[in-house]
């Protein structure tokens, strides 16, 4: 069981770090309006409504020995799980990051520019510190969501101890074989850790509720 716990934590940590970079990058390069923005946003939101098994199925097709990415040999590996997790948790991480960056008043960017800060400088000296809570909330929800993932993992990772057998999959197996005492322990552990993570997140997540504001008129504002 310890092996599965460690594997889950490793998967969640790695996915979270990747997600923070990917989500921020997508927000920064994505146009702030127009058809492209709508399309990309819609694609990214798909995991919110699709059954995880659908995502898992398509990923499996892509990664399987007959699929287009077969040469990467990612099906039923830990790396494959990371890819699946990143795709599956992206909307959950992207939203708080996007909301918290959008909530930053344009006047702060103008002020930084007046004080001599260029676009990249403004990202590090204004965007990151002012959107800090959004990033923390995004990291927590990304971690918790990856920890609780089941369908995608089962589809593309299977159930290989030490490689792809994470907590949720192990739990499923324990129930299958009728090992209820172990299943109790594992469920309680997941319940408690999820509760703690969500409680922690509520401290940072006010920016979740911030309504979308208009696109900044100031040209250098978005980054």
């Amino acid at each position: 069981m310890l092996e599965a716990i460690l594997l889950s934590v490793k998967l969640a940590l790695l996915s979270t770090v990747l997600l923070l970079f990917i989500a921020t990058f997508i927000y920064l390069v994505l146009p702030k309006q127009g058809i492209l923005q709508n399309l990309v946003n819609t694609v990214m939101m798909l995991p919110l409504v699709l059954p995880p098994t659908v995502i898992g199925f398509y990923l499996l097709l892509f990664l399987s020995p007959q699929g287009p990415l077969a040469s990467w040999q990612l099906a039923f590996t830990f790396e494959g799980l990371v890819i699946g997790s990143v795709i599956y948790s992206l909307p959950f991480v992207y939203q708080p990051i996007r909301n918290s960056i959008m909530a930053i008043e344009n006047s702060h960017y103008e002020l930084a520019a007046i004080m001599g800060a260029g676009p990249l400088d403004r990202f590090f000296s204004v965007t990151l510190p002012l959107a800090r809570n959004g990033f923390i909330a995004a990291a927590i929800i990304g971690f918790a969501h990856t920890l609780g993932e089941f369908g995608v993992i089962l589809m593309i990772g299977g159930n290989i101890p030490g490689e792809t057998q994470v907590l949720s999959v192990l739990l499923y197996e324990l129930v299958e074989v009728g090992d209820y005492p172990s299943a109790h322990k594992l469920s309680a552990l997941l319940l408690l850790s999820s509760f703690c993570l969500l409680l922690l997140m509520s401290r940072f997540s006010e920016s979740w509720l911030v309504k979308e504001s208009a696109t900044p008129a100031f040209k250098g504002g978005q980054n």
């Binding site: 702060h108 002020l111 520019a113 007046i114 004080m115 260029g118 000296s125 204004v126 250098g220």
Partner: peptide
């Protein structure tokens, strides 16, 4: 020439300091 490259200072009616 972008704002940050113009050697000027600008004090507005309010909100002249970065909050963080």
């Amino acid at each position: 020439k972008q704002t940050h490259k113009r050697n000027l200072a600008y004090v507005m009616q309010e909100a002249n300091l970065l909050p963080h």
